[in-house]
Write a protein that binds this DNA or RNA. Sequence first.
DNA 1: ACTTTATGTTTTATAAATAGATCATAGTTT
DNA 2: AAACTATGATCTATTTATAAAACATAAAGT
Lengths: 112, 112
Amino acid sequence: MAKVSARTYSRYSREAMTLLGNLIRAARIERKMTAQEVAERAGISRGLLQRIEKGDPKCELGATFEVAALVGVKLFDIEATTLNGHIRQTEDKLALLPRSVRKKVKVVDDDF
Amino acid sequence: MAKVSARTYSRYSREAMTLLGNLIRAARIERKMTAQEVAERAGISRGLLQRIEKGDPKCELGATFEVAALVGVKLFDIEATTLNGHIRQTEDKLALLPRSVRKKVKVVDDDF
DNA sequence: ACTTTATGTTTTATAAATAGATCATAGTTT
DNA sequence: AAACTATGATCTATTTATAAAACATAAAGT
């Protein structure tokens, strides 16, 4: 009966989720859209939208971002038009980085 | 056999997810952390981390944000120290907004 | 104050994601 | 070049989220 393996979250990510939920709810109300309306447009249930607005960690990333986009909350504070450019930047960076990370067998003296 | 109700995503949210995944992967590699290592610290499986780095919409928001925090990717471009302040701001705003949205029965002339 | 409608909450059946293991491949270091 | 290790990919059992419905509450408009 007792819940066994509850996942834990760092303070930062918990706060980030709360903030995102708050931003979504505020944006939705400012745009005078009902929960029902937004849920329908996003193709999700009203219950899920409620959890998203609460900052529930157990929501799909896709559903959450979709709702955010729908009510006009900017992710990363980046404009829609420049998102692609940012993606390309990260791809260029990734192309330069090693493709796999190798753990050192011996510990290196990082301290000085 | 065929998949029935595949969810769709707007271009903006799809791109945002891709970007987030790329940022996480780049940050992880730059910090020389293996996928295994990050997965363990986040309390998730390596497979899930892989999907997160790919920008798969069907990941838990919590797991994704946790990983982002772990490798040092800033959500909303906001510092950890000021997150709380931003939350309070949205709460203040929400307190002022109406608690439920009412749809107009008659359409109002918005056009002029 | 009354009526209407949005929201909050709970429950259940169903659908889907996750963990974990395994294997193949590719990349890194010596 | 050889050995080692990280990553990519796939599979299955299990856990878990989701949709949908129903109801109660609360808020907004008249």
